[in-house]
Design a protein around this nucleic acid. Sequence first.
DNA 1: CAGAGTAAGTTCCTTGAGGGAACTCATCGC
DNA 2: GCGATGAGTTCCCTCAAGGAACTTACTCTG
Lengths: 160, 160
Amino acid sequence: MQRTRFGDMACSIARTLDVVGEPWSPLILRDVYVGMNRFEQIQQDLGISRKVLAERLRWLTDNGVLERRAYSERPPRHEYVLTAKGRELCDLLMVMVRWGDRWASGEEGPPVLYRHHACGEIGHVELCCSACGGPMRATDVDVLPGPGARLRTPDAGPTG
Amino acid sequence: MQRTRFGDMACSIARTLDVVGEPWSPLILRDVYVGMNRFEQIQQDLGISRKVLAERLRWLTDNGVLERRAYSERPPRHEYVLTAKGRELCDLLMVMVRWGDRWASGEEGPPVLYRHHACGEIGHVELCCSACGGPMRATDVDVLPGPGARLRTPDAGPTG
DNA sequence: CAGAGTAAGTTCCTTGAGGGAACTCATCGC
DNA sequence: GCGATGAGTTCCCTCAAGGAACTTACTCTG
């Protein structure tokens, strides 16, 4: 984990990074999301150090993103599954995929495609407004201080 | 930056992490997004080490996410602005905000709110299908190998 | 003109996290 | 008993993060 802790900042980005900001964590979640639920599988798939993987799994479990459950008593064996909190982080992964597809996938095209259950088509995620349903990008909004904003130096704007 | 480089993996998540996976990078982008364009401003706002900030700004600039531009010749002074590539990363930040608001903002409520230009309402981002416009979450899709998929060990599924 | 101030870094040192290999523990199948 | 398997843990080494001080190039104030 990084040296500076982000969880105490009055910023939802920082708080999200506090949980999954360490570089391996999103890839671990991705693996669990696609059905690689066991330590050995994840370790071999990612090529991550066993030590770091154990640390990350513990952190993610302690933070309620993953759940560690036994699938065998004798011998004791465990697997990791996403909680509701973790499944919603996978939505974030889909947006990462979208950016990576657009800006970093090169000639070959996207490594994976999503087929939407509702319509059966291949599609990607678009960001829409919860109020009107129209497209909602970073360039389409004003950023205002919310109820959880903390006072900052007078000249600093909201940064949440 | 992390020790293991992610840019070579056949995975858009990994490639995105390669650019902004280091924990400070999203916060730096957030600052630039809300109008803190200068080295001193960002350093004081985040409390980040000057050394690390200089490294990150250089990395983000080299990767086409930020542009370094002079706003004064004499004395030489520079500021950082988002490129199109960087502005689209801010969409990702909005999704991080959404998750942080829901799962890590505590009693106080969200630190910031977004007012959508198109409808004037306070709203948050929802993920929608580019094909049908309906809600599209990680639980609403099948993951299929795409044209950029690379062969993996036979038993491994797509992970991009 | 001397001295202070400012923006944007760079250099140096210390600490601790990541990487990798080896080791442990409990159990199963032969 | 012997090896294999899953899920870690321990150990050591290196390199990146943090922090403070220093640099450069200029402007401003008295």
